[in-house]
Design a binder for these strands. Structure first.
Length: 235
DNA sequence: ATGAAGATCGCG
DNA sequence: GCGATCTTCATC
């Protein structure tokens, strides 16, 4: 159905702008995870946060270290770190070489359900050949291409949070420092014309707030999310 | 060497 | 609200 649609790829130049500019621009773009076995997991970016030099919450605030060194490089690479010994978080490195900054991807609305989730919880799987009735769609434009047997609410929250989205997309530190491009495990695609139209018509609106989970830089309003989107981590 | 804190999450 | 769980980094 959409096989003829072209998905334009987000390139490093586009990402080489200040993170507070890139963060809202990434809303409505798609993150693609290419698995080694060929499976693709796709998710619409619905929540982001910016981190930058001079920002006390930024991992690169104090000095260059082995962990944060990729943030000091040019825009367009991934920065993945482990938090609380349990979860991983995915960032898109932004701005020009020498300006340490990144955008944290905080939530996705999945466009498809990873097969490994269906395998682990059979209630997510769709019986072959079945033509289930679609639950009523969420308040925003996006429609899932499958008919989930679980409550749609649960499906929509599978990637509602930076740790959860890395779990769902099988992202860990092995994927840190890689360029976002189609020959890699991760890349980004620009907004589809449908999503862009919804934004232009204000059917999709953005909310800007302070960032989540910080003890420093709490007052800096560098979090953005799509209003009324059920896949956002917190409203 | 050592320890404190951390861009989280799910449960109660 | 709390604990899980372990890396990172600053300081000793």
């Amino acid at each position: 159905m959409n096989s003829i649609l072209t998905h334009s790829i987000v390139d490093a130049t586009w990402l080489s702008r200040p993170s507070p500019t890139v963060a809202p621009d990434l809303l409505g773009c798609t993150l693609v995870r290419q698995m080694p076995d060929g499976e693709q997991i796709r998710g619409l970016i619905v929540e982001t946060e910016a981190y930058a030099a001079g920002d006390p919450a930024c991992h690169a605030y104090r000095r260059r270290t082995p962990r944060n060194t990729v943030m000091f490089g040019p825009g367009g690479n991934s920065y993945v770190y482990l938090i609380y010994g349990i979860y991983h978080c995915l960032n898109v490195v932004t701005d020009v070489d020498g300006e340490p900054s990144a955008v944290l991807i905080r939530a996705l609305q999945l466009e498809n359900i990873p097969s490994w989730i269906a395998a682990e919880s059979p209630s997510h799987s769709i019986p072959k050949g079945s033509n289930q009735k679609q639950p009523s769609p969420p308040q925003i434009v996006l429609n899932l291409p499958i008919a989930p047997s679980k409550p749609l609410k649960q499906i929509l929250r599978l990637a509602a949070g930076p740790g959860k989205l890395c779990q769902v997309m099988k992202i860990d530190r092995n994927l840190s420092g890689l360029p976002f491009q189609p020959d890699q495990p991760l890349w980004l695609e620009h907004r589809s014309s449908e999503v862009q139209a919804a934004i232009d018509q204000q059917a999709l609106e953005f909310v800007q707030t302070t960032r989540i989970g910080l003890t420093q830089g709490v007052e800096i309003p560098w979090r953005w999310y799509i209003a009324n989107c059920p896949a956002v981590s917190r409203f």
